[in-house]
């Protein structure tokens, strides 16, 4: 199939970006979206042009590295018949011959652009550093079977822990809020017995870190949930807000 591509190019974080147009022939229906970009990059290289920089690594939807907005939608969500995919799992069979596709990076103040389609998501690590863990050092663990965890809780914890930290939630949010990401970690740990000791301090510290990093607030638009490749639920944001109120009532700051 033949495609017309409108791709964001930007030399570095200080330069002004712009859209460039490319046409690509002979794209296989079975190739993935990133393989289509590989093909374009190989053509550009052999022509002597600089290929398009984009983040990607595992190409199986789990590392969270790939991060493209396709036709205005993070990860090009809602193209595949089954939701739940990152852009590396999006396949060209869901595009039609002759289609024009616009490709942009994540856009958020807290994710500064680095080059072309690559942005810096270090702010997510900073949020985790503020408290996204159970403070247990190596060697200090009790026998694993000592604390039973109800299956229901383990399952919800796992639902939240499935977050891959890609940042699509931030890219999709009109406020560039990181509430879905942050609440996923708070729920993952806060629902397990192991995470109780630090539960309220964790929520206060992580929310502070999120605000400091320059992410916006949540206004319940639900765009984050709609594009999340791992179906992280808005309920987790409600849970996080609940914990935050409890923390305030408990005087945790």
């Amino acid at each position: 199939m033949k495609l017309h591509l409108k791709i964001w190019r930007q030399e570095n974080k200080n330069s002004q970006g712009r859209f460039e147009n490319y046409t690509l022939d002979d794209v296989s229906q079975d190739s993935s979206f990133l393989e289509m970009l590989d093909l374009l990059n190989e053509e550009l290289t052999e022509k002597g042009d600089e290929p398009i920089a984009f983040d990607h690594d595992c190409r199986e939807g789990i590392c969270g590295m790939c991060s493209l907005v396709i036709n205005g939608v993070a990860h090009g969500q809602n193209r595949e018949p089954i939701k739940q995919v990152t852009v590396c799992q999006l396949h060209m069979r869901h595009f039609h011959d002759g289609e024009t596709i616009t490709i942009e990076p994540w856009r958020a103040q807290a994710f500064p652009a680095l080059k072309d389609l690559i942005v810096d998501r270090t702010a997510f690590d900073i949020i985790i550093q503020a408290g996204g863990y159970v403070s247990v050092s190596t060697g200090g663990a009790a026998e694993a079977s000592a604390i039973p965890v109800p299956k229901k809780d383990a399952d919800v914890s796992m639902d939240a822990a499935a977050c891959i930290g890609c940042g699509a939630c931030v890219a999709a949010c009109p406020n560039a809020s990181a509430m879905l990401f942050t609440s996923a970690k708070i729920t993952h740990l806060g629902i397990l017995p192991q995470g109780q000791t630090e539960r309220y301090q964790r929520v206060v510290d992580m929310v502070n870190a999120m605000d400091t990093a320059g992410f916006g607030g949540c206004t319940n638009m639900g765009e984050c949930e709609a594009v999340c490749p791992k179906d992280i639920s808005l309920d987790f944001i409600a849970r996080m807000n609940g914990d935050l109120i409890k923390a305030a009532l408990m005087g945790v700051s």
Partner: peptide, 22 residues
């Protein structure tokens, strides 16, 4: 065996049976 203990303490959500055991 220490690995499983360590990971559970960190909050790794391993699959559980209905009784809550691993």
């Amino acid at each position: 065996n220490n690995i499983i203990d360590q990971c559970v303490a960190q909050g790794v959500p391993f699959a559980r049976e209905y009784g809550g055991m691993l």
